Each structure stands twice: as C-alpha cells, then as structure tokens.
Simulated scan of single mutants.
Amino acid sequence: MQAHWLYLGVAIVAEVIATSALKATEGFSRLGPSVLVVVGYCTAFYFLSLTLRTLPLGVAYALWSGVGIALVTAFGWLYYRQALDAPTLCGLALIAAGIVLIQLRGGH
C-alpha cells in the first residue's frame, strides 16, 4: 500500500471524528469534546497535507470530503438517530459514484 493512501485514510478518520464531536461540544462549552474537535482537525489537515505530496489537490480533497460526508452522515444516523430521507440517500449515492469514477480514472 502506498503511503499517500494511508495518510488519506488517517486524514478522513480524524476529520470524521472531529466533525462528529462538534455537536457534543455544545458551542465549544464542553472541554472534552472541544479538545477532540481541535486535535481531530489538526490531525486531519496534517495528514491531508502529507497526502498532497503525491496526490493532486482536487483528487485528494474530493476523496477526503466525499468519504467524510458519507461517514459523518452514517454516524449521525447511528449515534444521533438522524433520519435519512430519499434525497439524502440519493445525494450519498451520487457522492459514492463520484468516488468510484475518480478511482476508476486511476486517482490522478
């Protein structure tokens, strides 16, 4: 496995953790979740920057944000019991299709 894919995976996971913790900060009034958000985003951007040594910016950002959106949506559905309606599911399917197209193109 090439290192840029590992870096991108770490960046995505860190961003998903940070974004998912945002709701729990209650406007950054709770210390624990607030620290998790700051550390998560710092980690995400650091590893995204390592990814950009190899992958083009547009490809890396499309994968980072697209996978992140899908995972944060899944977390909200599972943890916060947020409803997923038909337009949301269609949008997620389009994001997934875009990620597949990027990968079929070779990721570059």
Rank of each mutant, 00 (worst) to 15 (best):
T88G: 08
F75H: 12
V100Q: 04
V39H: 01
T43I: 04
R81S: 11
Y61V: 06
T43V: 00
I12N: 00
I95E: 10
G27E: 04
I17S: 07
I12R: 02
F47Q: 03
A93G: 04
T88L: 13
F75M: 10
G76M: 10
A60D: 01
S29D: 15
C90G: 07
T73D: 09
S65P: 08
A62V: 12
G98W: 04
A18R: 13
V16C: 11
E15T: 05
S20G: 15
F45H: 06
P56C: 11
G58I: 14
A60R: 03
F47H: 03
I95L: 12
S49Q: 05
P87T: 05
Y80N: 05
L92Y: 08
C42I: 10
A86N: 06
T19S: 15
L89H: 06
T73K: 13
L57Y: 11
L63H: 01
Y46P: 00
L78R: 11
P33I: 05
F75E: 11
A74D: 08
L48H: 00
V35H: 06
F28H: 05
A44W: 02
F75R: 14
I95D: 13
A97N: 10
L48N: 00
W64R: 06
E26K: 15
L22H: 08
V100Y: 11
W64D: 01
L36S: 09
S20K: 09
R81A: 10
E26V: 12
V67S: 07
Y61S: 03
L22T: 11
S29N: 12
G58C: 10
Y61D: 03
A21Q: 04
Y79A: 08
A97T: 04
D85N: 11
A60E: 05
S29R: 15
W77V: 04
T51N: 07
A24N: 14
L50H: 13
W77F: 15
S65K: 14
A44Q: 00
V38W: 01
Y79C: 08
L92H: 03
G68M: 06
L84F: 05
L84R: 07
V39M: 06
C90Q: 09
A96Q: 04
K23Q: 13
Q82Y: 05
L63N: 02
K23H: 15
Y61I: 02
S29V: 14
L89D: 02
I99L: 07
V16R: 01
G68H: 08
S29G: 14
I95V: 12
T19A: 14
A21M: 15
K23W: 09
K23T: 06
V38M: 05
T54H: 06
Y80M: 02
E15Q: 10
A96G: 07
G91I: 00
F28N: 08
Q82F: 13
S65A: 15
L31V: 14
P33W: 07
A21D: 11
Y79F: 14
S34R: 08
L22W: 10
A24R: 09
A60P: 00
I12P: 02
A21R: 09
V37T: 09
S65M: 13
F47A: 01
F47R: 02
I99Y: 02
T88S: 13
I69G: 07
T54R: 13
A24T: 09
F47I: 00
T54K: 11
A14M: 03
G98N: 10
P87H: 08
T25A: 08
G66T: 10
G58R: 12
